[in-house]
């Protein structure tokens, strides 16, 4: 074994000398894998980031959409790639927390198969009702739901979405009953909610804010930890009387497992710096997302605490692995 291969071996073990701390990245085009079709929030995030990183680091960043099985196809693919910085993954909250709970064989482990980089962006869900529902605040809504068990239907953007599980959690905490109607996306659910076929929903902020502003839907409470800048007058669920209730989604960036610490740190720094650019933050805010740019440990903690919470909801709602 010559000196060079020894050096490589050392580098791959993550015990590279200090000089290597400034890991040369990227050395070749980096692929950002998006688990959903072009045009959605993950895709927008990936393309915005790709453009920023491209300009900052002078290497091409390519976006690749690999769809299927609620993101599991892309997750399995990324898990098999080498951890050399040439592959990054836009991992949505559903992929990292809910999928493994709902699918018998998700085919990947959200913690074990990936190197965490950052929670990039987050969006709150908003509890909205059709104006025909006689409730102006959360307490009135709960009272109305209790008085009319199983009369109300709520829409979501699909089975296992944060909107679906958020509402199941709401049912469990408030002891109310209603029917779940999944749609192929939040937009389709909004149409039926405005049209009066559905009575309520806990939907992604950006999808429903235009309807709330026009008075076609009534906002009851925000699922975020804080009030949302787009609707500052609407209270959070916690303020409205449901302690510990949050509902929303986030998108994280992860790399394949076993990435050397210096490289992971370097990618983290580059990605979070790009996210914090005013232009990027503004672009993402327009689609209802707030930039988080969390620490690497922050992502791991988020995955662990949320998985624990949703495991409980999934079990009690009888949705577990089928």
């Amino acid at each position: 074994m010559n000196r060079r291969s020894l050096l490589f071996a050392a580098a791959s073990l993550g015990v590279a000398p200090a000089v290597r701390a400034q890991s040369p990245w990227p050395t070749r085009p980096t692929t950002i894998v998006v688990p959903y079709v072009p045009g959605g929030p993950s895709d927008i995030l990936a393309r915005t980031l790709a453009q920023q990183l491209n300009a900052r680091l002078g290497q091409p960043f390519v976006v690749e959409n690999r769809t299927g099985a609620n993101g599991a196809v892309a997750a399995q693919y990324v898990a098999r790639q080498p951890a050399d910085g040439a592959t990054l993954f836009i991992a949505a909250s559903g992929i990292m927390t809910i999928n493994p709970l709902l699918l018998a064989r998700a085919g990947y482990d959200p913690i074990g198969d990936f190197t965490p980089i950052t929670v990039a962006i987050s969006a709150s869900n908003l509890m909205v009702v059709n104006p025909s529902v006689p409730a102006n605040n959360l307490q009135e809504l709960i009272a109305w739901l209790r008085a009319n068990p199983d009369k109300a239907s709520y829409g979501s953007s699909g089975i296992g979405s944060s909107e679906h599980l958020g509402m199941e959690l709401f049912k469990q905490v408030t002891g109310t009953e209603m029917t779940h109607v999944p749609y192929p996306g939040g937009g389709a659910a909004t149409t039926d909610l405005v049209g009066g076929t559905l009575q309520l929903a806990l939907l992604n902020m950006a999808t429903v804010v235009p309807q709330v502003q026009a008075g076609r839907l009534r906002a009851i409470a925000v699922g975020g930890r804080t009030r949302h800048p787009l609707l500052p007058e609407v209270p959070t669920m916690v303020e409205a009387g449901l302690p510990d209730f949050t509902s929303g989604s986030w998108h994280s960036i992860v790399a394949p497992r076993g990435m050397a610490e210096p490289l992971a740190t370097r990618i983290h720094d580059a990605v979070t710096a790009a996210l914090r650019t005013p232009d990027v933050a503004q672009r993402l805010a327009a689609t209802g997302f707030l930039v988080e740019a969390s620490s690497r440990d922050g992502l791991t903690t988020t995955i662990e605490t949320e998985t624990a919470r949703w495991r409980d909801v999934v079990r009690r709602a009888g949705l577990a692995a089928g």
Binding site: P38, T190, A206, P210, A286
Partner: peptide, 23 residues
């Protein structure tokens, strides 16, 4: 703010990115 077709859905996302708030 509800797209009538698949390409229109992407167009709507692009409008939002550019700060035009359809709806």
């Amino acid at each position: 703010a509800v797209p009538g077709s698949a390409p229109a859905a992407v167009l709507m996302a692009a409008m939002m990115i550019h700060g035009l708030n359809p709806g």
